[in-house]
Design a protein around this nucleic acid. Sequence first.
DNA 1: ATCCGTGCAAATACTTTGCATTTAC
DNA 2: GTAAATGCAAAGTATTTGCACGGAT
Lengths: 155, 155
Amino acid sequence: MEIQAEDMHEALRKAGLRITLARRVICRILADADEEHLTAAEILDRANNVAGGVDQSTVYRTLEALAELNYVQHVHIGHGAGFFHLRGDHAHHHLVCEVCGTAINVPYEDLEPAFASLRDKYGFMPDSTHFAILGHCQDCRETEETKSSVANDLL
Amino acid sequence: MEIQAEDMHEALRKAGLRITLARRVICRILADADEEHLTAAEILDRANNVAGGVDQSTVYRTLEALAELNYVQHVHIGHGAGFFHLRGDHAHHHLVCEVCGTAINVPYEDLEPAFASLRDKYGFMPDSTHFAILGHCQDCRETEETKSSVANDLL
DNA sequence: ATCCGTGCAAATACTTTGCATTTAC
DNA sequence: GTAAATGCAAAGTATTTGCACGGAT
């Protein structure tokens, strides 16, 4: 089951925080984004498309409040801006290409065996809501191979 | 076999780059750090302890040059400053606790099966020289359990 | 002599903070 | 009415870049 904007509203209320237009909009954006990785800047843009005059500081503060309530996670994958996304229960993980930055989603089941062995062997519980593996994606690997064969031809 | 400062010197020379005092010092720091995760600021500090007057821009530029030569990797784990470290042989990976920051080393063999399946299924080649899994370590998990039972007692 | 590398300072990118005003409750 | 949230601007980190000078080859 997906997290709804209303779930976040309720959590905010319970924490004694207030439901404002900006927050409503941001919760909606997060709920709609689902698996997408959004940067603060993208969330800001989308918020301003719906309701004008939203400031970046409001975006960051709202995201921080939702992170405090365990709805949002702020992750840094590679360089540049961090990503914000909901900590859903349908866990998925990311294969992030170090060359082109593409992220491939991997369903939890594909990594479960590896996680189980880490848990058993090291008592370590991987964060099942977010996980990034850095490496090289297929396209970039092919490009690299082409490049090296070209280089070899030139020798 | 560990990477030596001299290996990096040779690579720099081969690339037509020059061996300067700052670079010599930085290569040494990286070789000595071994598997430690150093930030640019820490490398700068250590460099200035050995040879004064090294600038941060020199540190970043040298690290970038070494990254280009595939000796150094710049990774961002969590927020804050990124870490720089040598790309050693694919020896081990890190389980990084999101609570206390402790990193547990895991030998490559323990993750090899998972890596193989990612390669087969997604054509994705995990970076075998660096890999961090975020999660909660055993100690922090125990502390958390204690905290929640205390909280329950207070209800 | 030729360029590459350096320090310095300024610029950039991302995120956080201080403050006066507005708004939800 | 009161405390929380907002917009604005400015400050804080982490990193990069422009430039003139100095140094490695």
